[in-house]
Design a protein around this nucleic acid. Structure first.
Lengths: 115, 115
DNA sequence: CAGAATCCACAGCGATACTG
DNA sequence: CAGTATCGCTGTGGATTCTG
């Protein structure tokens, strides 16, 4: 059991977490739900990410079959990223995560936090 | 923006992820959904975790108001951990995550992975 | 344009020993 | 029993430079 990236077929949670872990995957996924994006477009959407990280996370997501990478053999290079079917099926999950997050923040910020 | 632990009130996703990140939080949460547990009980439930890590993750979850820590001032010490209301509200989210994970694993393992 | 390669800092996690 | 304290490894992510 080296790190959390190892996906065991027996552990759905581990698989899910492997997909959601990483600092930028959520952002990338979110932006891809609005349609296909080129590498440079993603960079604009997520200004703080470096090329290196964007590349790495995209490759991971590709290996996990969450996104598809379409390379156009042209000069200058052009690559388009799209969600796969499985990738799209993540959307409701992400929404659920987000709506819970809102609920959580509201609750926690409401509680007077008695020390 | 140092690391992903920093929760911004504006980002529900970030909050949610901060809660789910960490190697053991899911396990701990899962075990606590079945009722209150003492420190030593959690250790038995999760044999591979070290005291240090168990302590750390529990403290994080406590700070995030996901669990409650009840200390009994007795000798020997006794501490009970329970889920807070917000902690309990996480359950459906976790189930959703898990069921998607199952779906995902089934799909991905099915696809012949054409290279 | 879309990356690959290299170098590096630091957070996460683990092992072990000690304590009220 | 339920923790601290200390040490160290390793992986993740960042900055920068180079390329087809």
């Amino acid at each position: 059991m080296k790190h959390s990236k190892d996906i065991q077929p027996h552990c759905p949670m581990g698989a899910t977490l492997a997909i959601l872990s990483g600092k930028w995957k959520l952002l990338i996924l979110t932006h891809l739900t609005t349609g296909k994006k080129r590498f440079s477009e993603l960079q604009k959407c997520i200004p703080d990410i470096t090329q290196r990280m964007l590349t790495m996370q995209l490759r991971e997501l590709e290996a996990l079959k969450i996104i598809h990478r379409k390379v156009f053999p042209v000069i200058p290079p052009k690559v388009e990223y799209t969600l796969t079917d499985i990738g799209f099926s993540l959307q409701p999950v992400l929404n659920h995560l987000e709506s819970w997050g809102e609920h959580y923040l509201k609750e926690v910020l409401t509680v007077p936090d008695k020390v």
